[in-house]
């Protein structure tokens, strides 16, 4: 039984597409609604980030509900940075009551990267433990073991970064997340296809692709400067020189970035064990429908 369109798509073996939406920094509901309308139909579900990069934004739960109202299926992200197990369970029960089904469990960017570096973090749970707690909620009990008269309906996701270190143990961590309850996985953006292929070979070797749906990350880059930024400033990213050179040489770098992303998406879905793509077009969300169309992946 599937509780969401995303789960239904993946469970029947079709290629799924998800895309990230960064909620606004204030109460700009109309801007969010307009973005939702522009993106509608371009993916099976849309991730609403949870104060991404530790910057204060509209909550993931509120922006997920707004997307629902616009007819988009949300993937609500929930970090371990800002909530303890009490708040997590409460918010997930509330989210499910509001119609949210897909929840992505993540550690969260450290607060020192954001606009409130003075904040105290929580990390009562880590992302593996968050999955355990939310799975038990779905199965009908809270973490204290008390039965729930009406458990939340959830499709639980996790993140994986094939480009962080130590490389050979990245798959071990993924295996733990699957063991803990992850039903789908969204990976860090893939620009280094060679390394991603090596990662997926290890995933397949362990048979994890048969236990969890893997959506490979894709990102459109506007220029070689954006690629350099990703390489030098974003921890846990791998950006090959070919990518940087290709964008640098391009007459129209933006167009080249779109072409590169489309090619990458097509390549990604051909890799064994990959069940879909997850597009992160940071502050460039309106390009998503075109990427999906040109990659031939329209839902």
């Amino acid at each position: 039984m599937s509780v969401s369109r995303l789960q239904g798509t993946l469970d029947r073996g079709a290629i799924a597409v998800t895309a990230e939406i960064g909620p606004p920094r204030s109460c700009e509901v109309e801007r969010l609604r307009a973005m939702a309308r522009a993106l509608k139909g371009s993916a099976h579900a849309f991730n609403l980030t949870d104060n991404q990069a530790a910057n204060v934004r509209m909550s993931s739960i509120a922006s997920s509900v707004i997307c629902l109202q616009e007819g988009l299926e949300p993937v609500m992200q929930m970090t371990c940075r800002d909530r303890n197990r009490i708040a997590m369970q409460s918010d997930v029960i509330g989210a499910s009551a509001l119609g949210i089904r897909n929840v992505l469990c993540i550690s969260g960017d450290h607060q020192t990267f954001g606009n409130h570096p003075q904040a105290k973090n929580v990390y009562d749970l880590d992302s593996v433990q968050e999955l355990m707690v939310l799975r038990r909620l779905r199965e009908g009990a809270n973490w204290a073991g008390e039965p729930l008269a009406e458990p939340p309906q959830l499709f639980l996701g996790a993140a994986a970064n094939p480009f962080a270190d130590p490389f050979e143990h990245r798959v071990t961590r993924l295996a733990k997340k699957v063991e803990a309850g992850a039903q789908f996985v969204q990976t860090q953006c893939v620009l280094d296809l060679d390394r991603f292929r090596r990662f997926m070979a290890l995933v397949v070797e362990r048979g994890l692709h048969e236990r969890v749906h893997i959506l490979a990350g894709a990102i459109p880059l506007r220029s070689h400067k954006a690629a350099l930024f990703m390489r030098d400033k974003v921890a846990g990213m791998s950006v090959p020189d070919e990518v940087i050179d290709r964008l640098r040489r391009a007459a129209d770098p933006k167009e080249e970035g779109i072409r590169l992303c489309v090619e990458t998406m097509q390549e990604l879905v051909s890799i064994e064990g990959v069940h879909g793509v997850h597009i992160t077009a940071i502050a460039w969300e309106d390009v998503v429908p075109r990427l999906v169309r040109e990659a031939g992946l329209t839902p």
Binding site: V128, P166, K176, A235
Partner: peptide
């Protein structure tokens, strides 16, 4: 570990260093 993670390194571990401060080794590495 800057996040006190108990089940492995976060996505910010690179070259054995912690993303929060390059002077700090990644505990999980």
């Amino acid at each position: 570990c800057a996040k006190g993670l108990l089940n492995g390194p976060c996505g910010g571990s690179k070259g054995g260093r912690c993303e929060v401060s390059p002077e700090t080794p990644c505990a999980w590495e």
